[in-house]
Computed example of a mutant assay.
Amino acid sequence: MMILIMVLISFLILVTILGNSLVIVAFIEDKRLRNRSNFFLLNLAICDFFIGAFCIPLYIPYILTGRWILGKFLCKLWLVIDNLMCTASAFNVVLISYDRYLAVTMAVMYRSQQYHHFKTVLTMTTVWILSSLLYSPAILFWEYLFNDSSFSEDLCLPAYYYNWHFLVAASSFDFILPLLSISFFNLSLYWNIRSRSRSKHLTAMHLSSSNTEGMQQKPYKIPVAPFPNRQNDLQETEITMVKTSLHHMLKKHRSKKAKPTWIEIDQGQTSNIRIVKLSQDKKIAKSLFVLVCVFGICWAPYSLLMTTRAACHDYCIASYWYDITFWLLWINSSINPILYPLCHESFRRAFTKIIYKYVKNAS
């Protein structure tokens, strides 16, 4: 049984490190991936990489011997990094969900901020700061502030291990609020897509009736201010309501001296662009739904049992149930590279190039 457990843990470490390393390398190698949404995916990959490269390996001697043999300093460091990375991973999931929510519901505003890297990096830094403030001070100073150091040196546990008041408050921030947030974004996307689907059907019926009556609509001309380093804007499917969106873009970029380009769009083209955009947004909504389910499955058991175990001091829950829920958090870090970057075609292309390059160099 111990051999089987070690094989499974080794496989988990390998998958977590390789999956998240591939995301980080792809982001470094391919400059086309360096936009706002992919920066947040990079932030998530960094968290999950450290869980696979540092947190899980240091826990293996604990499993084999049943006691902590690496000293108090490494115990504190392990607890700080483990809680920091898990919390930052949860907060990054919320950030990614919010980013996708903006991409669908406020496409024009979102697009104008895609390459404002300063704001993106500031947001990423804020995630790390908030994550470090949740558990790290309690891990480092709890026993000194409350004179509570009742654990043996053979155990590596935080001093608040049995303080269920603190655990309930902390789990509200690292599980309940993130779950409510991503659920809200998912439901908002669902209603947005549903209303646009109805609008699409009404538009299709209107165009059909217009064609039967032999009425031809004249194409309307819309001035579009050109964007730097962005070609074939109309071929991209990130425009929601073409006529109003393009006018809004013109207002946003009036300060630029470039002359506007006149583009003719008839109602049929507008309808086709909306349909393609709608299908992409449906894919985003489906991926967010999977995200909510996986996040809930991996985090809910641990958050529930952690507070219950602390309240009854381990008398009401068997220790192996706590271990199972504890491992679910780490398994989430190995699943994240599959849930996020591998769902993006741009990342898949980058992964293929990196693997091909590695195999070619190896041969």
Rank of each mutant, 00 (worst) to 15 (best):
L179M: 14
H247S: 11
F141D: 02
G19N: 07
V359T: 13
T325S: 15
L157R: 15
L74N: 11
S136K: 02
V23F: 06
F50P: 01
F326W: 15
Y302T: 03
S195T: 10
K252H: 06
H116K: 13
W142S: 07
H117Q: 08
K282W: 11
F347V: 04
I239W: 14
F11Q: 07
Y161D: 10
N163K: 04
T244N: 13
I338P: 00
L95Y: 06
A138E: 05
S346E: 14
F184S: 11
P57R: 10
A26R: 06
F27A: 05
L18P: 00
F141G: 01
E236Q: 08
F166K: 08
S149Q: 12
L167K: 15
K256H: 02
A204H: 10
G71W: 08
L44S: 13
M215A: 11
T244M: 06
A26C: 15
N20V: 04
G66Q: 04
E238N: 13
S208D: 13
K252C: 12
V25D: 00
I193N: 15
V127G: 05
S334H: 00
L234I: 14
I324C: 05
Y322D: 07
S303H: 02
A225D: 01
V168Q: 04
A88Y: 02
M1G: 04
I222Q: 03
N229P: 01
H116I: 07
I265M: 14
T65P: 00
Y340M: 10
F347D: 04
Y315S: 15
F185M: 10
W262F: 14
P301R: 09
I239T: 12
A311C: 06
P301C: 09
G296R: 03
F289V: 00
